[in-house]
Amino acid sequence: MEDEFPKKRNIRPTEKSNLPIVTLLVLVVLVLAMLYVGYEYISDSSSNSEELTSVVVDSTAEAAAAEPITDEPAAEPIKSDEDTETEKPKEAEKDEPKKEEKPAISAASIGGEQITHTVKSGETFSSIASRYNLKTETLQGLNSSVSEIKSGVTKLKVQVKAVHTVGPGDILRVVAGKYGVTKEAIMKANGKSKDISERGEKLIIPFPDRK
């Protein structure tokens, strides 16, 4: 005989778990976070590209503004009065002919003895050179520092063959024969108009050939 009241079977207690809800919330949070990060990245990249574009455009515009292109020729710099004054002497120097420099001649290259001649009225380099049987160039070379001669002031260096002191019996013809020159050359060098010489007188003996 079966029991009137049958025994109840052991029923498994139902367990309530919150794990699926938590997992879902975490996934939702992660998705939101990823969306937020992606939005920030996209917005930053777009802003950076705009800045670069603006910088390139601005630099190009500045460069174009700094160097304007014109067909007009560049204006010449205005010269001051000082510049024109400094240029004038240069032009004057070009126009002026260069003065010929007299080549210096040494007394040793000619030989003989050197005397000093004081310039007299009316005398020139040419007349003085002819008096002592010298070339004009030779006399000027001996006096290269002298550019202008003045009567009674200028003293010129002159090369002669010798200076002879007149002794007993020294007439001009004898003295001329002794040095191999003409009597007339001695008279001309000493400014004599007569064939006369005095004892003790110093006679200038010019070169027999023009130096």
Rank of each mutant, 00 (worst) to 15 (best):
E137H: 13
D83M: 14
E93Q: 07
I42G: 11
F125T: 03
L134Y: 00
P20V: 07
I128P: 00
I69E: 05
G167W: 00
S49A: 14
E4I: 13
R9T: 06
S109H: 09
P97F: 09
L52Q: 05
S193H: 05
K178L: 12
D209M: 13
T70G: 10
E15T: 13
G200D: 07
K7H: 07
G180A: 13
P13W: 08
A92Y: 14
F207S: 00
E87T: 13
P73M: 04
S145N: 11
S45L: 08
G169A: 10
K102D: 00
S46C: 07
P20F: 03
E87P: 02
D95V: 04
R12F: 10
V163P: 05
K99P: 00
D170N: 11
E2K: 15
R210E: 15
L52Y: 07
A61T: 06
V31T: 14
G169K: 14
I128T: 02
K157C: 03
P103C: 10
I186D: 00
P13E: 14
T165E: 04
H117W: 09
Q140K: 06
S127M: 10
Y39C: 11
I105E: 01
D95Y: 04
T116E: 02
K16G: 12
V22R: 06
S80Y: 09
I115V: 15
Q159N: 15
I21N: 11
R173Y: 12
T60E: 11
T116V: 11
E93I: 02
I78R: 02
P206R: 01
D209E: 15
T53D: 05
K88A: 10
I105L: 11
T53A: 07
L203W: 01
T138W: 05
G141S: 07
K188L: 05
G169F: 07
K150P: 04
T60I: 12
S80N: 14
S147G: 13
V37H: 05
M34I: 12
S45V: 06
K88D: 06
E123S: 02
I110N: 01
D81K: 15
P103N: 13
P68Q: 05
N190M: 04
E201R: 11
D209P: 08
G112Q: 01
E67T: 12
Y132C: 01
I196D: 04
K90W: 02
E40M: 11
D58C: 09
K98P: 02
E50Q: 08
Y179L: 03
G200W: 12
Y41V: 09
D3K: 14
K98I: 09
E67Y: 10
A61W: 01
V181S: 00
I110S: 01
R210N: 09
A92E: 15
G191R: 10
G169P: 00
V22Q: 10
